[in-house]
């Protein structure tokens, strides 16, 4: 909750670049990363995307590394399971617990490394999008997808209300904390329930209020926003194509020599 990445995206210099180009870069990275059969292309993608985020996007490196370590617990836990249960080959190390023999072999280790690299590349692509493109910019993309209007309307209104409620939630939480509302397990449960209830009631009343105020302003089920046109620049295009070419070459080379 402390890291709403959208705040960083709003001040990113890459915000004013073409949305479709950014989405193409991210989509490409995600798809190649997930379909690669060696750990080299995903690591290359992760490196390039991290560089783009930190260097072009002017994100502080320390902050970037902090958020990148957030999914680490889940990933490491699962990667360890994969290392133990997957693959065959010579055993690297092993031990016995409760008459079960657990061992890590080369196949399992390679698989674990591959999954780890894929996750890393996917996360860095996602962070690139999250840290350079605010949600408001993505709505124009969402509108072009021909999804039902009600779905898009709900997402746009939801986006606006997330920030309202986050502020309310934080305010209440501070107030509760200074009154020792989270001093132990039982009180924190009650406090959290009260906080959530207040939020629910607030949101319900807010929902009724926006309907009235929007109807008064002739809302007919369609919010229309101004969209800026941002043409793709030549140097951006060249850089993107070089990146695509390098990653695709790596992907092609490792595909032939692949072990799996």
């Amino acid at each position: 909750m402390t890291n709403i990445l959208d705040d960083y995206a709003l001040v990113s210099p890459l915000r004013y670049r073409n949305n479709w180009l950014k989405i193409a870069i991210v989509g490409f990275g995600v798809l190649v990363g997930v379909s690669s059969q060696s750990f080299i292309p995903p690591f290359a993608i992760a490196l390039c995307m991290s560089f783009a985020t930190v260097h072009f996007g002017k994100t502080s490196l320390k902050f970037y590394l902090t958020i990148l370590s957030a999914p680490a617990v889940f990933v490491l836990l699962s990667v360890i399971i994969i290392a133990f249960f997957f693959g065959s080959g010579t055993e690297i190390f092993g031990f016995n617990i409760f008459s079960y023999h657990l061992g890590v072999n080369t196949g399992g280790l390679e698989m674990a490394l591959l999954v780890f690299s894929r996750t890393l590349s996917g996360m860095s692509c996602l962070f690139f999008l999250a840290l350079t493109t605010p949600m408001v910019e993505l709505f124009s993309v969402l509108k072009a997808t021909k999804l039902p209007d009600s779905f898009i309307e709900i997402s746009m209104m939801m986006y606006r209300y997330i920030f309202v409620f986050l502020e309310v939630a934080w305010g209440i939480k501070y107030a509760q904390t200074v009154r020792l509302g989270y001093k132990d397990w039982r009180t924190s449960l009650t406090s959290l329930a009260m906080l959530s209830t207040t939020l629910f009631i607030r949101s319900w009343e807010q929902g009724e209020k926006i309907f009235i105020s929007m109807s008064a302003r002739c809302y007919d089920g369609k919010l229309i926003f101004f969209e800026e046109k941002r043409p793709i620049r030549a140097n951006e295009l060249v850089l993107t194509c070089t990146y695509f070419a390098v990653v695709l070459t790596l992907w092609y080379l490792t595909r032939i020599n692949s072990v799996f």
Partner: peptide, 21 residues
């Protein structure tokens, strides 16, 4: 119901971002 569903969605988002003891 549309604004109501939107705020309900925002509520779920905020709820899911609260830490639970």
């Amino acid at each position: 119901l549309l604004p109501l569903l939107a705020v309900a969605g925002a509520f779920i988002f905020v709820l899911s971002s609260l830490k639970m003891p």
